[in-house]
C-alpha cells in the first residue's frame, strides 16, 4: 500500500492522501458508518469526561478523598490540578460505583434520597443502593480502558509472533502454529473464564485473560499475510539492497499486512467490553461494585418482576444499562463492518 501510494505521487497525478485514499473514500460514502462513528464518538466523550458527567460524590466512594479535595465542584475548574487529575488519571477508587445506601430495593430516577451528606437525586435511580448513572458513565470509561489496552497488547503480541512465524518459517513457525491451534481450538470464553477465575477478580486480571486468549487470532492472520507479502518483488528488492531482517519486517512486510487486522481490531474494540461485561454479569472477573455495565445488568436480575400492582415498577433498573450496552455494540459494529468493507480489496464498489 505504501509503495503504491508513493508510485502514484511520483507520476505527478493528484496526490493521494490518507483522506482521499480509496478505503477512506468508501468509508465516507457509507451512511451507516457515520451512524456508527457518531455513537462511538458519543461514548468516547462519555468515557473521557466521566469525572465531569458523573462527578465524584460526597458520600458513596473514596474518589474525592483520593483526589485530595473536599468538594465535587473542584473537578469542574480546568485551571486547578484536580480537574486534570480527575480527567486524565483518576484514582482507582473513582471506578467504584457510588453506593448511596445499602437498600437492595431500587429507587426510581431523580427521587431524592437522604444521606449523611444531604439529599442526592440519582439521575437514573439506584439498584442495590448503587448509583446507576455513575455506574454507566464510569462503566464507559472502564470499557474503553479495557478495550484499548487489550487490543493494543493483542496486536503487539499477535503481530510480533505472527511476523516472526511467517517470516522465518521452520521450527519456530511449526511450534507457534501448533500452539495457536491449541488456543483456537477452545471456545475463547471458556479460556477467559478459567484464567480470570484462577487469577482472581480485578480489571488487570480480566485484561490479562483477554490478551492471553486473543493474540492468537491476530498472529494467524498476520502470518498468512506475511507469507503472501514475503514473496513479492519489492521484498526481494529490499533484501538485495542489504536491508536487515528486522527492518524488512517492520518497514516493509508488516505495513502491507495491516489492512486486514485493522478491520478486525476495530470490531474487537467494540466486542471486548461486552464480553467483559458478560463475565462480570456471571460474577467472574470484576469485583462487586466496580463500575462496569455487566454488574448493573446483574443487579437488574433481582428486580425483574416488579411489584404486585405494577409489573413494570423497576423498569429503569434494566432499561438504561441494556440500552447503553446495545447502543455501544451497535455503534462499534456499524463502524467496524464499514471499515471491513472499505478495506476489502475484492469489493470494488
Amino acid at each position: 500500500m505504501a509503495a503504491t501510494a508513493r508510485a502514484t505521487a511520483s507520476v505527478g497525478e493528484k496526490r493521494e492522501t490518507f483522506w482521499t485514499s480509496r478505503p477512506l473514500r468508501r468509508l465516507r460514502r457509507n451512511k451507516l458508518a457515520w451512524v456508527g462513528l457518531t455513537l462511538v464518538i458519543l461514548f468516547t466523550i462519555l468515557a473521557a469526561f466521566a469525572p465531569l458527567l458523573a462527578p465524584p460524590p460526597l458520600i458513596g466512594n473514596n474518589c474525592l478523598r483520593d483526589l485530595g479535595v473536599s468538594q465535587p465542584a473542584a473537578v469542574y475548574n480546568p485551571l486547578g490540578s484536580t480537574f486534570w487529575r480527575a480527567v486524565l488519571i483518576p484514582p482507582a477508587s473513582c471506578y467504584q460505583i457510588t453506593r448511596i445506601n445499602f437498600k437492595p430495593e431500587p429507587s426510581p430516577p431523580l427521587r431524592p434520597i437522604r444521606t449523611d451528606a444531604g439529599p442526592v437525586r440519582p439521575l437514573l435511580g439506584t439498584a442495590n443502593g448503587y448509583d446507576v448513572w455513575y455506574g454507566l458513565v464510569w462503566g464507559a470509561r472502564t470499557a474503553f480502558k479495557l478495550a484499548i489496552t487489550v487490543v493494543f497488547f493483542q496486536l503487539l503480541i499477535g503481530i510480533t509472533l505472527g511476523a516472526i512465524s511467517g517470516y522465518f518459517g521452520g521450527w519456530i513457525d511449526n511450534l507457534l502454529q501448533r500452539f495457536i491451534e491449541v488456543i483456537l481450538s477452545f471456545p475463547s470464553l471458556v479460556l477467559v473464564i478459567v484464567i480470570t477465575a484462577i487469577l482472581g477478580p480485578s480489571l488487570t486480571n480480566v485484561m490479562i485473560a483477554f490478551i492471553a486468549v486473543g493474540w492468537a487470532g491476530y498472529a494467524r492472520i498476520v502470518r498468512g499475510d506475511v507469507l503472501k507479502v514475503r514473496i513479492l518483488e519489492f521484498v526481494d528488492g529490499a533484501r538485495a539492497l542489504g536491508v536487515s531482517d528486522l527492518r524488512l519486517i517492520v518497514r516493509h512486510i508488516i505495513p502491507n499486512a495491516l489492512t486486514t487486522i485493522t478491520a478486525i481490531a476495530v470490531l474487537d474494540l467494540g466486542s471486548l467490553p461486552l464480553a467483559a461485561a458478560g463475565l462480570s454479569f456471571l460474577g467472574i472477573g470484576l469485583p462487586v461494585g466496580f463500575a462496569d455495565w455487566g454488574q448493573l445488568i446483574s443487579f437488574a436480575r433481582a428486580w425483574i418482576q416488579g411489584t404486585a400492582d405494577n409489573r413494570l415498577a423497576y423498569w429503569y433498573v434494566s432499561f438504561y444499562p441494556a440500552l447503553t450496552i446495545i447502543l455501544f455494540g451497535l455503534g462499534w459494529n456499524l463502524l467496524g463492518s464499514a471499515v471491513r468493507d472499505a478495506v476489502d480489496p475484492r469489493d470494488n464498489g
Binding site: G278, G294, R311, L312, A322, I326, N333
Partner: peptide, 24 residues
Amino acid sequence: VVTGNIPTFVMGIILVVIFYGLLG
C-alpha cells in the same frame, strides 16, 4: 445487525423482563 449486536446476557434479560416480568 440488531440481534447480532445484543450480547447474550442482555438479550436474555430483555426476554425475561418482557415475558416473565411484564406479561407473566
